[in-house]
């Protein structure tokens, strides 16, 4: 024991042994837990997709289960729907093709993830589009660090509701109050006291929609752009 302690070579062997033991422990943890962690990351987005494309009422009180590519929704009344979500190769952030039933089923819509700088920090959004990309079905805020009680109202459903059903043939603009917003079918009403956050969300939605349209018009290799 004391000989081990007094010799540098012995110490080196001890450190190597410790490193080996810890390394093996970490490798075991990695092999065991990585699949679960990746599933968690995917599930975060998949869980929001039904609400984005089918509307808020379809998912209130419903239970959503995720199994690989399939998302099954069992509504409160007992009806069950199943969607297949397949990620498409894309230049920018993630883009998902959502079809009813199996992957060969009817195209329900597209969901894309976009991000850009907001007022305080980066805002990350999910934007839902109809299958022909002519209408936005809704948005969902994944990540934001806006001012509490002011800018962070962008996560509230009454603000996100402004985006549901808006046509995409012209870029969206922000109106500072209800009268300004009513002047154009492409205008959304900003949050009181959070014009910059609202404008940032609007810009992110515009950029994401434009990106999705380009990617579908000129699909990359492996991109399933069937209508």
């Amino acid at each position: 024991m004391s000989r081990l302690r007094n010799s540098y070579l012995g110490q080196a062997w001890l450190i190597l042994l410790l490193a080996g033991v810890f390394g093996a422990l970490l490798a075991a943890i990695h092999l065991e837990l990585s699949p679960r962690i990746e599933e968690n990351i995917r599930a975060e987005i998949m869980r929001e997709i039904p609400g984005l494309l089918l509307g808020g009422e379809a998912v209130t009180g419903a239970s959503i289960t995720i199994d690989g590519d399939q998302v099954s929704i069992e509504s409160a009344s007992g009806e069950s729907t199943s969607l297949t979500v397949v990620e498409q190769p894309s230049e920018a952030a993630a883009l998902y093709r959502v079809s009813e039933g199996d992957p060969e089923g009817r195209l329900l819509g597209w969901v894309a993830r976009g991000q850009d700088h907001g007022y305080a920090d980066v805002i990350e959004l999910l934007v839902g589009l109809t299958g022909d990309t002519t209408q936005i079905t809704g948005i969902y805020v994944l990540n934001q660090k806006e001012t509490p009680a002011l800018g962070d109202g962008i996560v509230r459903s009454d603000f996100r509701q402004h985006f549901a059903g808006i046509a995409t043939d012209s870029p969206l603009t922000v109106g500072r109050n209800a009268e300004e917003a009513a002047q154009s079918p492409y205008a959304i009403q900003a949050l009181t006291g959070a014009t910059v956050s609202s404008r940032s969300v609007c810009n992110i939605v515009n950029d994401t929609v434009a990106l999705v349209k380009t990617e579908i018009a000129e699909p990359a290799e492996g991109f399933d752009a069937r209508p």
Partner: peptide
């Protein structure tokens, strides 16, 4: 200082 970033951009 919050918001300086957005305005500088």
């Amino acid at each position: 200082f919050s918001g300086i970033g957005a305005n500088v951009e």
